[in-house]
């Protein structure tokens, strides 16, 4: 199983974690994050979301996040799978697993990874809500923006 992926299939955090742990010779910590489709957003009642990706660049951006995290936390193993297509309320849009000798690094890397996904991975969600639909837009993606990267790291290590 690839450690980073953009897929229309249902996500499998257990399989991703198992893959990472299989190579973790005696490591002590696994931290995971699962992002779910919420039923409310900015006062709107959400019906479902549609995710779209620029897939080859999205995979590269996910790999970049793994590399960045590896540079910060050298003994870390990190995996990220992002789902695209139509997702119903309560379904997982992203799963992240971080495996490390110690819990502090695992927690921090997991948080860092989701913050960076929101900054630099070319994926968009279209929210279908009661009464309309709208493309959500967050950060202008710029992997070389060191201020943004440091902000993600500060949040991760707070």
């Amino acid at each position: 199983m690839a450690l980073v992926a953009v897929t229309a299939d249902r996500l499998d955090l257990e399989a991703l974690t198992a893959e990472l742990v299989a190579n973790a010779a005696g490591d002590g910590a696994v931290a995971t994050f699962t992002g779910l489709v919420r039923d409310r957003n900015q006062g709107r009642t959400v019906r479902f979301l549609e995710y779209e990706a620029y897939e080859p660049l999205a995979v590269r951006a996910l790999r970049r996040i793994v590399d960045e995290a590896g540079a910060t936390w050298p003994d870390l193993r990190l995996g990220l799978h992002h789902r695209i297509g139509r997702l119903e309320i309560g379904e997982a849009s992203i799963v992240i697993a971080a495996v490390s000798p110690h819990r502090a690094d695992a927690f921090a890397a997991c948080r860092y990874a989701i913050e960076r996904v929101k900054q630099i991975v070319p994926i968009w969600k279209r929210e279908h809500f009661e009464g309309g639909e709208v493309w959500l837009e967050g950060a202008t993606a710029d992997p070389d923006d060191e201020m943004a990267r440091r902000a993600a790291q500060r949040v991760a290590c707070a």
């Binding site: 620029y54 992203i94 900054q119 070319p122 994926i123 968009w124 969600k125 967050g138 993606a141």
Partner: peptide
């Protein structure tokens, strides 16, 4: 050549 609006993954 691709043009990308602000991203909203996660």
């Amino acid at each position: 050549v691709a043009f990308l609006p602000p991203v909203s993954g996660g």
